[in-house]
Nucleic acid binder design. Structure first.
Lengths: 242, 242
DNA sequence: AAGTGGTCTAGACCACGTA
DNA sequence: ACGTGGTCTAGACCACTTG
C-alpha cells in the first residue's frame, strides 16, 4: 500500500491522495467527520505527524476543515464559503453582499460547440441553461447565464424546481452530490447586449464586467459554466495578489 | 525574548514576527541567504522543527524561498514572480506574455485627494505620476497610470530616467529598496476616455477593463497606486478560486 | 475524564548542491 | 565530505469540546 522507497513520492503526499480518493468516492460526505489523526495513523501505519502533514495540505486547499477539540471534517458549501471564496463582487466600500437571485428562464437544450468544449462534453450533449438576474439591495446588478450538464443534474429545471436558492453550490452539493472545489474565471469588459441592457435597466452598449467561470469538482471535472455580466457602476471585482 | 507561556502566542508565530522584522528592517536584503534552520534554532533556543514551521509560513507567503541543498533566501522580484503572481492578463488561449512598456509622460505633481487617501499620504503630498502604454506583440493593449510617493522614490523621473524597465517592481527593489509584497486589485468595466482611446487606437466609449491596484510592502505600507485600462478584445484577466 | 486537534522537542535519515 | 533543506518518527504537553 504505502511505500517509502528511495526517490519515491513522500508518504504524506501518498496519504493526501488516499484521503482525496475517499472523499471524492463519497465515502466521507461533505460535513461529515473523518477519523482522528491518531486513528488514521494507526490504520495507515504511519506516525501522527505524517497524517497531520497530509491533512494540513487539504485544509489549506479548503478540502478539509479542522475544529479543535472536535475533529476534522470534510468541508461543505455554506454561505460563508460562497461569500469568502467564490464571490468577489463588493460594493464601492469593499463590502461583500450576497445578491438575491431571480430565475428568468431554465431550459433543457443541446450544448453549443463552445459550451461543450468548456465543459468537456461531447458535441450536442443535453445541457440545462439557466438565465437569472441578481439584485443587490433590490437593484438589478448582474445578469447570469449558467450551463450545466443535464446528466449530472437530473430533474433540475423540470416542474416547479425553477425556483433556485441564492447559493447554488450548496444546492449542487445537497441535491446532486456535486461539490464545487475550484473555479477558473476569465474577466473581460464587454458591451451590454440588448438582452443584458433590458434585464439590467441600462442602455445597450454600456460597459459590463463579464466573468466567465468554469467550476470543477475535487477530481477536476468541470460541472458548471457560468457567465456573469456585472454592472460595475456601484460595485467592483476584488482580488488580492501575493 | 521568546516566551512560551500559557495561552500566549505560539512560539513559531513569534518567530515569524522576528523574521519579518529582520527582513523589513533591511538586515536581510532580497536575494540574500538567511541563516540555516539549525543555526536559527540555536540562536533562538528552540528546536529546528519550530523554526521550520515559521519559515514554512513565510515561504507560503512568498516572503522566503527555499532551495534544497543550498539554503533559505529572501524572495526577490524577478520576471517569474512578476508574471506568476502580479500579472493576470493572458491572451485568448490563456498564455501569459509580459507586455512591453513605453513611458508617455512622467511628472512630479501634488497628490489628488483620492490618490493621497489611497496611498495613505497627507493631502497635497508630492507624487510622481507616470503614464505609460503597454504593448503585447507590438499592439497597444493597456494604458497605465502609476502614482508613487515622491519621498520614497527620490530621483525617479528627473533627467533621462524616464526610461523605465518592464518589470517595475524589480526596479523598485534594486534602486529604491522597496519590495512589493502584496497588492489589492479592484476591477471594473469602464468606457474608454478620449485619452485612452487615442493611446490604444480605439473609439471613445469602447469598454475597457479597469484594474486599480494598490501595492504594499511587507509591513503593509502602500507605495504604489496603479490604474490600468485594458483592451480585452484579445486578452482577458485570469483568476483562480478555491 | 476522555478524546480531539495544536504545539514543541530531539533525533534519525534522505535528497540535493557545493566544494 | 559536508552542510543545507525535506521527510518521518515517537513522545510530551497544551487547548478545546463533549459527555
Amino acid at each position: 500500500m504505502l511505500s517509502i522507497n528511495k526517490g519515491s513520492i513522500p508518504l504524506y503526499q501518498q496519504i493526501v491522495g488516499l484521503l482525496v480518493a475517499r472523499i471524492s468516492s463519497g465515502e466521507w460526505l461533505p460535513g461529515e467527520i473523518i477519523p482522528s489523526e491518531i486513528n488514521l495513523a494507526k490504520e495507515l501505519d504511519v506516525s501522527q505527524g505524517t497524517v497531520r502533514k497530509a491533512i494540513t495540505e487539504l485544509v489549506e486547499n479548503n478540502v478539509l476543515t479542522r475544529k479543535q477539540g472536535r475533529g476534522t471534517f470534510v468541508s461543505n458549501h455554506n454561505i460563508d464559503r460562497a461569500l469568502f471564496h467564490f464571490f468577489h463582487i463588493t460594493d464601492n466600500n469593499g463590502h461583500k453582499v450576497l445578491p438575491d437571485g431571480e430565475v428568468i428562464s431554465c431550459r433543457h437544450k443541446k450544448a453549443l460547440k463552445s459550451e461543450a468544449r468548456k465543459l468537456q462534453l461531447e458535441p450536442d450533449t443535453e445541457i440545462i441553461k439557466i438565465e437569472r438576474i441578481r439584485k443587490i439591495a433590490s437593484k438589478p446588478t448582474i445578469a447570469e447565464t449558467i450551463v450545466l450538464p443535464a446528466s449530472r443534474f437530473k430533474g433540475l429545471g423540470k416542474g416547479k424546481s425553477c425556483e433556485l436558492p441564492n447559493t447554488l453550490y450548496e444546492m449542487y452539493e445537497k441535491q446532486f452530490g456535486i461539490t464545487i472545489h475550484r473555479a477558473e474565471e476569465q474577466l473581460r469588459a464587454v458591451k451590454a447586449s440588448q438582452h443584458d441592457a433590458s434585464t439590467l435597466g441600462l442602455e445597450v452598449g454600456t460597459p459590463l464586467l463579464s466573468i466567465e467561470r468554469i467550476a470543477t469538482t475535487l477530481d477536476n471535472i468541470p460541472v458548471e459554466l457560468r457567465i456573469s455580466r456585472c454592472n460595475t457602476t456601484n460595485h467592483y471585482y476584488q482580488n488580492t495578489l501575493f
